[in-house]
Structures are given as C-alpha cells and as structure tokens.
Design a protein around this nucleic acid. Sequence first.
DNA 1: CTCTCATCTCTCGGTTACCGATATGAAGGT
DNA 2: ACCTTCATATCGGTAACCGAGAGATGAGAG
Lengths: 111, 111
Amino acid sequence: MSKPSDLVQGTLDLLILKILALEPLNGWAIGQRLKQVSDDVLQVSDGSLYPALHKLEQQGWIVSEWRRSENNRRAKFYALTRPGRAYLDQETAQWIRLSTAISQVVSLEEL
Amino acid sequence: MSKPSDLVQGTLDLLILKILALEPLNGWAIGQRLKQVSDDVLQVSDGSLYPALHKLEQQGWIVSEWRRSENNRRAKFYALTRPGRAYLDQETAQWIRLSTAISQVVSLEEL
DNA sequence: CTCTCATCTCTCGGTTACCGATATGAAGGT
DNA sequence: ACCTTCATATCGGTAACCGAGAGATGAGAG
C-alpha cells in the first residue's frame, strides 16, 4: 500500500540536491522547504527522506555536519559538494529531456 | 543494475494508455509507437511492456483481442475501455500537476 | 525447401525506490 | 510534569522496471 502520490519516483535525489544547491539545510528543513517551494504539491515522508540523504552522502554528492538549527536543536546540516553539483546538473538535464517527451506524448491530439 | 534511463518510473501505464487512446495496437507496436512519437527519447523493453499490459487488462482499463498485424502475424491488439479512459484522464492530470511542480523547483534561481 | 530475419508474446529473478510504522530524544511552552 | 514541535533514524513491505531468456510464426532469400 505505498504508491507515491506526492512524488514522481526517481526524482527525489534531484529535488533534494536542488534544494541544497540553494542553501545548506538539515534533513527536516529540506522536507519543509520542498513542500514550500512547490506550493504544497511535492511532499516527502521521513522514511524516504533520511535514507535518501544517507545514500547521497555515501556517494559523495553531499556532506553533513552537526550544528544547531534555528530553534537551537541539534540537527545535521547537509551541503552540496562539487561532484554533487555536477550530478545535479546531469540529473536536471535528464529530467528535462524525459519530462518534455512525456508531456509531449500525453498532449497528443486524438483523431 | 536496472535504473530506468529511458523512462520515468510510474509513467508507463499513463504512456501506454495514451498511445492506445489514439489507436488500438498490439503490444510490440505500442513500444514502436511510443518511441516514434517521443522522437526516440522514450523506450520501453519487452520485459516491462508485457507485464504492464497484463496488469492494465486485469484492472479493466484495456481489453485484448487476437488479430492479425500489418505483417499478417498473430498479435494481441489492445483497446482502451471507458474506465480506462477515465483513468487515463486522471493520471494525465496527476502527471501535469507533479511534473509542473518539479520543473518549477529545478528551475529555481540560485543566490 | 530450408534457413534466417524480423515480428511478436511471455515469464522469471533481481534491483531500486519509496512509504508506513515505529522508536528515540531534546527544546520550549503551559 | 506534560505536551507539542522539531529532529534523526531504521525496518519491513510493496510497486515498478529491467535484463536475460525462451519460443512461435510469417516472409523472403538462397
């Protein structure tokens, strides 16, 4: 029972990386920011977000650092690395390529 | 080792349904048509296509009928049903909603 | 007449990706 | 003391897709 209705599968990495390209943030804040910048359309659950963050860090696209959040709580802040930036650009291009093609197909006129 | 590079996960049903909305086709031809209408961007393998078709038929979105293809070979032709049409419209709306939001996020300007 | 090629359908095992449930805990307010 | 919000994390389950493989049939070539 877990169909992603608030996310397109395979785009989570791209979205996280993009959010972090704007500004380093802690995990929880990334989820909030994503929701905010997408006008409440895009939402990600904890159970998806944290594993994704760990994977991204393990692959070297982002680095983490324990700091204090705005509310003085301990939080792990993530920042984009140079390879992460390159990966983001690549994934962005791929997204544009594929989403454009799909949108083109779904908008075909019928006979 | 199977990351979908020629497809966005979760959009296969939508694409198949849309192709069939234009014209009833057999499985193999659906793959060809998809490739054609997307200018070679979107491609689906047999191993993805046929299971998807079976699932779609089982759910009542499409119906099948054995006929002869253009090359006089036996082929199973699929056609969209009324519920399938409704499902297609719904999935199309969902795609537009989500892809628009994602495109909006990835095109945000950085500081 | 046989051989090969293109067409056409199908299944299985494996991987990736995401979600729901669940656990833990600290800071600040009542 | 207690509750809410902020914050991180893991686990098991499910959905989706792909690669590899198997097999059948019609057309045209040799």
